[in-house]
């Protein structure tokens, strides 16, 4: 909902703290999650993530959440899907170029980042283009996999002749963004279920945004 999403960005600091605690908790739970099987967990966790983040941030389930680097304002609600905004078309008063009734997602993002502890440092990282293969999958699980497995998997992969070339290049080119959000250019092996929904996110996300904003 538009008003909830605006509220979240304006209280970015609270959400930053909550997220930091939850993330470390999840990373600690990695051995258990791994035992349960990420493949099995994928669908149910994705549903919970969609409901929670959908309510709070109008989350579009891109699968590579960067909320804590975008002042808790979801960049996928930008009609241009800009991941490093704002664009040059922002209207007087901070409204969106495309949808003049909506606050610019990125004006809210920079202001939100300013309210956070490490927001301004994080928003400066160059974010890679969205990997559309990961749309619909759980970003939370991806972050846990990356953060917990990264060191180990990199070592193993190095032994086996290095990680997947395409993945490695994306991770290398956008290494600054990966520092905070390894999920934007993941290296760890993806469970099958996370890649099942390969449907390209059509402009439905934009339409939804328009509807939400005009309400």
């Amino acid at each position: 909902m538009y008003s909830v999403r605006i509220f979240c960005a304006r209280h970015a600091r609270v959400f930053e703290k909550t997220y930091t605690v939850l993330e470390s908790l999840f990373v600690l739970l990695h051995p258990i999650l791994n035992k349960l099987g990420y493949n099995r967990l994928e669908k149910p966790v994705a549903i919970i993530e969609k409901l929670t983040k959908g309510f709070l941030f109008d989350c579009q389930m891109c699968g590579q959440c960067v909320l804590s680097s975008t002042g808790m304002s979801c960049p996928m609600n930008c009609p241009k899907n800009v991941r490093n905004g704002p664009c040059g078309g922002v209207r007087e008063g901070g409204f969106c170029e495309v949808n003049s009734h909506m606050r610019c997602v990125w004006v809210e993002a920079w202001n939100g980042a300013g309210r956070m502890t490490s927001g301004l440092e994080r928003i400066r990282a160059v974010q890679p283009p969205v990997n559309r293969e990961l749309a619909g999958s759980s970003s939370w699980l991806r972050v846990v996999r990356e953060k917990a497995e990264l060191r180990l998997s990199l070592k193993q992969q190095a032994k086996q002749g290095g990680p997947d070339l395409a993945k490695a290049e994306m991770a290398n080119a956008f290494s600054d963004a990966r520092k905070n959000h390894p999920g934007v250019a993941p290296l760890a092996t993806e469970p099958k279920a996370a890649l099942a929904e390969q449907a390209v996110v059509e402009q439905t996300s934009v339409h939804k945004t328009h509807k939400a904003a005009s309400q």
Binding site: K80, N81, V126
Partner: peptide, 11 residues
Amino acid sequence: FDFDSISLLRT
């Protein structure tokens, strides 16, 4: 809008 100007620059 697959890229934005900044991710395009980096690419």
